[in-house]
Amino acid sequence: MAGFVLQRLMQAVVVMLVMSALVFVGVYAIGNPIDVLISPDATQDIRAATIARYGLDLPLWEQYFAFLGRVLSGDFGTSFVYGIPVTQLILTRLPATLELTLTAIFGATLVGVPLGMYAGYRPDRIFSRVVMGLSILGFSVPTFWIGLVLIFVFAVDLGWLPAGGRGETVSLFGVEWSFLTLDGLRHMLLPALNLSLFKFAMMVRLARSGTRETMSSDVVKFARAAGLSEWTVLSRHVLRLIAIPIVTVFGLELASTLAFAVVTETIFSWPGLGKLVIESITALDRPVMVAYLVIVSFVFIAINLSVDLAYAALDPRLSKGRS
């Protein structure tokens, strides 16, 4: 097991290095930072001084190592647009995205998996058909459309919930969180719901097809023949057997939503990472883009690593040999 973890960690470091190089080179290819930093009518001397100050006259590889060194110490430079350190800027935005994404994904999984399992266990019940209908809806209707409908119905028409913003926040570990206040939760409900529908649909499908397949297996027949109750069969045998695809999708969705909750964040004016990155792309705010890409790669790699470790915990065949 320790060897497995170590091997995966090494892989993660290598991937991270490759990613950082790609990000560095890629961002150099778009736009010229000098044009953003210096007004076009600046003197030649000022231009040269600025270029030297940012190290832009050094060879690319030297710039890369300087960049790598700064990244490792958590220094992504200063945002051209906001004029504050990028690390600080991202730290104010990341929690917003984090709490929204986690709420959406955990909600979708905790509701979707049991409903999907039921639909797979009793496929002919009306309730199961309703669940499947909902999941088809979640798959086929675009997120922005559902978001607008949610705002229209619950915020505009009924006036029950706010249409945007984070609401009241509470400071914890030096950052602001909405999920700790009632007002914050009310603000989070609609965007989280919006974000979770697709994931809910996916979880329902996965759990349903896995359960259907497993229910007719010999494992279930044998467990029933030994007198296990249906609840025990489902909660102990079936759930464990269908857990691996569910964990996979959970990880993938978590990573991609953390990085790309843009649509929902924009519709609900949720001040998260997705909104920040769109703004910085339009403004060619290079340090923010670089930091965003590096952080996103890091998040992806970290989540993939956790999923791999979860596999090993869920499926003994992966971590132990024959004895």
Binding site: D218, V219, F222, A223, A226, R236, H237, R240, A243
Partner: peptide, 17 residues
């Protein structure tokens, strides 16, 4: 090969029974 649950230990499976 098909009747025992591959992701539960023998002891857990027997315990359930």
């Amino acid at each position: 090969m098909m009747t025992l649950n591959p992701v539960l230990s023998i002891g857990d499976q027997m315990g359930l029974v």
